[in-house]
Each structure stands twice: as C-alpha cells, then as structure tokens.
Nucleic acid binder design. Structure first.
Ligand code: ZN
Ligand code: ZN
Ligand code: ZN
Ligand code: ZN
Lengths: 146, 146
DNA sequence: CTAATGTCTCTAGCAACTATAGCTTCAAGG
DNA sequence: CCTTGAAGCTATAGTTGCTAGAGACATTAG
C-alpha cells in the first residue's frame, strides 16, 4: 500500500493533483489508514499512470473520463475509444497548422526588424496591422490548451 | 465616436472582452456619454486592434501589456520589443516540437488498433503504458495556452 | 410611444491545476 | 518515551483569458 506521496512519485503526479482528481471523480475515493490518510494499491497506480499518460498526450480530463469508463468494460467494442483518439489527433493537427503559421509570422517580424527605435520597429508595426502579415493566422474556431 | 458594440465589431473583439481589458488595465478607462455609456475614438480602436492581433499571434496579455507600454515610447530602442517577440517565437517552436511528437504517437495508436474489443484495443493499451511509445513526448517544462 | 436592442454593473463559471493556512499524523533519532 | 520534522489532512482562493447570466438603465427604429 502506498501513501499519496509515494503514489505521486511513482506516477509522476503531484500530490495536490491526485487529490484534485479524486475530488472531481476521476479517481475513486481512496481507502484510509487508521489516521485518516489515503492509501493506494496497484490498481490506483495503474489508473493514475493512465491519466498521466493521457494528459501528456493532450487529452482533456473529460476525454480521459470517457476513456477510463470504456477501459472498465473490456468486452465492449473499442470504436468509441478509437474515435476519442482520432478526435484528439485532429485537434493536434489543427493546432499544429495554426502554430506553423504563427511561427512563420513571428520569424518574419523578428527578421525584418532592423533594430532601431520603437517608432521604426517592424515588430510593433506588424502587431498593429494584420495586413502586413503573409498568412491568415487568425483564431477562427475555439481552441483548447497545450 | 464609437460605442462599445461598434468598437468590438470593428476590431473583431467581443464586448465583454473589451470591458475585461479595461478592467485589467490593458485599455485605458473610456470616456462616457451623457447616459454613462463608453465612447471610443480612433486611438482606442488602434490599441484594441493591436491587442487582438497580438493575441492572435499567441502573445500573453502580460507580454502585450509590455509591448503596449513600449509602443507608447516611440523614441526608445526596440530591443525589448524584439526580445518579447523572440521569446514568443521560441515558445511557439517548443510547442510545435511537442505537438509534432504527440501527432506521431496518436497516429501510431490509431493506426495500430485493429478495431476489436476494448481488452485488445491498442489505444487503451498505449495510454496505459508509455514504454509502448516511440518518442519521449512528456510534459517536461511548464507550458501556456494556445 | 412602445418595443427591441444595446449597454451598464456585478457575480460566477470554465479548464486544470497550484498555492496557502492551519491543523493532525507518522517515522526516526536521541 | 519523547520530540522533531516531514508528510498528510481539509478548505479556500488564485491562476489565464475570457464567457455567461441577472437585473436595471439607455438608445433607437418604427
Ligand atoms: Zn524592433
Ligand atoms: Zn497577422
Ligand atoms: Zn481500438
Ligand atoms: Zn507515451
């Protein structure tokens, strides 16, 4: 049996994060020691490692919640899980496209600046006027984190 | 003079967002009409467009605050502005590298799944075990938004 | 003049944590 | 056995960049 600190160290997750996952129902309520401290077994470690890895791959906690409940029913078909993964892949591809455009614009800005006064700075100038940009990089749809 | 709604429409920024920018001091307090409604001139529109464009390029509000105060001093040298832009470029490049790795892993997962039961699903399997990954895609340093 | 927008303030909520405060429990050394 | 320090507990508030709602006032079109 692991204390919360050991569990966190093994899974690479900070202690308050584990408590947060329990609070939002992503981890089941842990058993407690005589002194009211949480205790975890191998299953909890596996579940937490799953969460951690999925987070590292950019899945949202909502998606992870669904993936976990799917993985609790091993006899079901896996199409739903695959769909979640494909949606995540599509999301990553959209961000990649946008970031690639941003990178191009930022490089252009930085390269074009001759390094004089603010009044002549290309960085400031381009930031004030999107028509100086070479791509249409604007935020069209919503976008989430990492 | 523009009302807040017209200003937002011209700059492509939602009305509550403008009020939010004023609240956090990114926009100066607007003048008011007789009936206490905010009124904006050309300078406010330019400033808001600058903010919007910088946001679209991924700068944080903190960075934008600095850029704006730099652009208010046109006689100063522009090295500080260029440094902010270069830092943003570096940030974008780091995210790009990470997202590229994520994309590779997600593609591998999706392709390898044969589409049977959850118990045999490669997606679920890989999520539970990072050693099945081909790259080290983990969250090493902190990372900010889109 | 009335009805439909538009605007006002204020508060609360979103994701996914992180930090703080003030307490209790545990493990190890003397 | 006792003390000290680390680790654990709860609860609350803060982070970023907005967005949504309630309820009241202003403006404008017909
Ligand atoms: Zn410059
Ligand atoms: Zn642009
Ligand atoms: Zn599958
Ligand atoms: Zn992995």
């Amino acid at each position: 049996m692991l204390t919360i600190g050991k569990l966190g160290a093994q899974a690479g997750v900070k202690v308050p994060t584990i408590r947060y996952y329990e609070q939002i129902g992503l981890l089941p309520e842990a058993g407690r020691s005589a002194g009211n401290q949480r205790l975890y077994g191998r299953k909890a470690l596996e579940r937490l490692a799953f969460i951690r890895h999925a987070r590292d791959l950019g899945f949202t906690l909502e998606a992870i919640r669904d993936l976990l409940s799917l993985s609790d029913n091993p006899e079901q078909p896996c199409v739903a899980a695959d769909a979640i993964a494909r949606a995540q892949l599509a999301e990553v591809e959209r961000r990649l496209a946008r970031l690639t455009a941003l990178k191009a614009e930022l490089e252009r800005m930085v390269v074009q600046c001759a390094g004089g006064k603010i009044a002549d700075c290309r960085v400031i100038e381009v930031l004030g006027d999107h028509s100086l940009c070479s791509t249409d990089h604007r935020h069209l749809e919503s976008e989430a984190s990492p």
